[in-house]
């Protein structure tokens, strides 16, 4: 299947994947800033009251967004409007199972497809529970993007890869978002190990904050995911966030695109 994700990752240069939480500040302006500054893929976080896999930065973003009254309809509207403004840029929704399955997986897949969403990352639906959402997404042509982690051993990896689409998200640290970054040697070894078993592009995230770190990872992976560092900017600057997002994203994009 060719979609925006495959086209993007088919480029010879590594891709920059940027995460922000929907409804935290001026979402449209923040997303435009990321795209203008060179983000290749957008991950839009669906806020949830109980973000169990997230560190303080993204937890706070979730609470700010919900505190501002963000609903699932709002998140889908941000996606729809983004798609209209940026027809070519891949858009991935990332979040937790409960808001995604609340009205039934078919409802969610249909709504996400209508909004022009290319992929969905659901943190707390492992391959073992794929039935809860995966079939509905695939039926609508949306890529279920799975996570692999340092604890995903060789015996388990095939199960994670089976049914994964779009790209594989390698979580470089066993931990929550926004904390320390793994050693580049460990990232390189794990990405190499994963790439032996799949043709899917591999993007690496968790703990990536600076252009230097991003460049190191881009040398060994197909994509680099940056989240907490951007989300912190949204938290710190509010309505002024877009210009600051642009500055960091431009530096990250420069580092990632020219890493090899």
């Amino acid at each position: 299947m060719t979609n925006r994700l495959t086209t993007t990752f088919a480029q010879p240069r590594p891709s920059l994947v940027c995460f922000i939480t929907a409804g935290d500040g001026d979402t449209a302006a923040n997303l435009d800033a990321l795209v203008e500054a060179g983000a290749d893929v957008i991950e839009l976080g669906m806020p949830f009251t109980d973000p169990m896999a997230d560190g303080p930065a993204i937890q706070s973003a979730n609470l700010r967004s919900l505190g501002a009254g963000t609903t699932t309809a709002d998140v889908l509207r941000y996606a729809t409007e983004f798609r209209a403004r940026h027809p070519q840029v891949p858009l991935v929704l990332m979040g937790y199972a409960n808001p995604m399955v609340r009205r039934g997986p078919e409802w969610f897949a249909e709504a996400a497809a209508l909004a022009g969403v290319d992929g969905v990352i659901c943190v707390d639906i492992p391959p073992e529970e794929d039935d809860a959402l995966g079939p509905a997404l695939r039926a609508k042509g949306i890529a279920p993007i799975r996570l692999a982690t340092p604890t995903t051993d060789a015996a388990r990896l095939p199960q994670v890869l089976a049914g994964s689409e779009g790209f594989l998200y390698y979580v470089s640290v066993a931990g929550i978002t926004g904390k320390q970054q793994a050693q580049i040697a460990s990232i390189e070894a794990n990405v190499a190990r994963i790439k032996q078993s799949t043709d899917l592009p591999v993007a690496v995230g968790f703990g990536v904050r600076t252009p230097e770190q991003a460049a190191d990872i881009a040398k060994v992976a197909d994509g680099v995911v940056v989240g907490s560092a951007l989300v912190e900017i949204c938290g710190a600057y509010g309505a002024e966030a877009p210009q600051h997002l642009k500055t960091l994203t431009a530096a990250l994009a420069e580092a990632v695109h020219n890493a090899r």
């Binding site: 169990m52 896999a53 199972a97 943190v123 707390d124 639906i125 492992p126 073992e128 529970e129 809860a132 799975r146 996570l147 692999a148 982690t149 340092p150 604890t151 995903t152 051993d153 388990r156 994670v160 979580v171 066993a174 931990g175």
Partner: peptide
């Protein structure tokens, strides 16, 4: 054997925890 009580239960955890 999958830890399901009818439609309930299961193992809805992040991949990091799954092997554990």
């Amino acid at each position: 054997e999958r830890g399901h009580f009818g439609q309930f239960g299961g193992r809805y955890v992040a991949e990091t925890l799954m092997p554990l």
